[in-house]
């Protein structure tokens, strides 16, 4: 089996925001919502670091657990998807998400904030793979085409890696050994190994 993961090499991310832009474009994400963001820490300091973040498709995903209407579900590749037809916009997944991934059209009154949208790992939704209905609600389904998320495949510095967790882990480890430093896989402990003590 294979388990899909995201890994952002913070020593390589240059905050070009290509991942967020290409994601919005590929999936035609509506105004007011963004599936992938770039966050800069210690901006302007010597240790300034940037890191791209979206839904991490967590192990034992908290959003799936708290969803009151079973909108969210996980697949056996680890990808967490959502069903926009059942979503009620309650915001529980947003409270439960360790990475602030779920987005709503409006940040207003409970109930009026609209249907949740989040990163699908470019894997569409419950509609038939590759159908127009699926594209309109969830964007392109690249996984069904045997491709990987566009944010990672477009990354010019190959900071953002997406795909089989073991493989990207290996790529990252070899890279760190080669260059002699690395600040580790950010967010992996919270996302993929929740029971590990750090």
């Amino acid at each position: 089996m294979s388990r899909m993961k995201f890994l952002c090499d913070t020593d390589r991310c240059i905050e070009c925001n290509a991942c967020s832009t290409v994601c919005k474009n590929e999936h035609e994400v509506p105004w007011g919502m963004v599936r992938r963001r770039v966050v800069t820490i210690n901006d302007g300091e010597a240790d300034e670091t940037s890191v791209a973040i979206s839904c991490m498709h967590c192990t034992d995903a908290p959003c799936v657990a708290v969803c009151p209407v079973s909108t969210l579900y996980q697949t056996d590749l680890g990808i967490v998807l959502h069903d926009k037809d059942t979503c009620i916009g309650c915001g529980y997944c947003f409270y439960a998400c360790p990475f602030g991934a779920p987005q709503y059209p409006n940040s207003t009154l409970f109930g009026s904030r609209g249907v949740m949208d989040k990163c699908t790992f470019c894997a569409g939704g419950p509609e038939e793979n590759g159908s127009q209905a699926e594209f309109e609600k969830y964007g392109r389904n690249r996984i069904a085409e045997g491709k990987l998320p566009i944010c990672a495949e477009v990354c010019s510095t190959r900071a953002l890696l997406a795909g089989d967790g073991d493989t990207i882990g290996e790529i990252y480890r070899e890279r760190v050994i080669h260059r002699g430093y690395g600040s580790g896989a950010w967010g992996w402990k919270t996302a993929y190994y929740p029971e590990e003590k750090s």
Binding site: G187, W188, S198
Partner: peptide, 20 residues
Amino acid sequence: DTGSMLAPGREVVGLSSLPY
């Protein structure tokens, strides 16, 4: 192998140039 590359889980809020 994976254990050796885990960064500790912690609260991280930075800056973003995205207006959301």
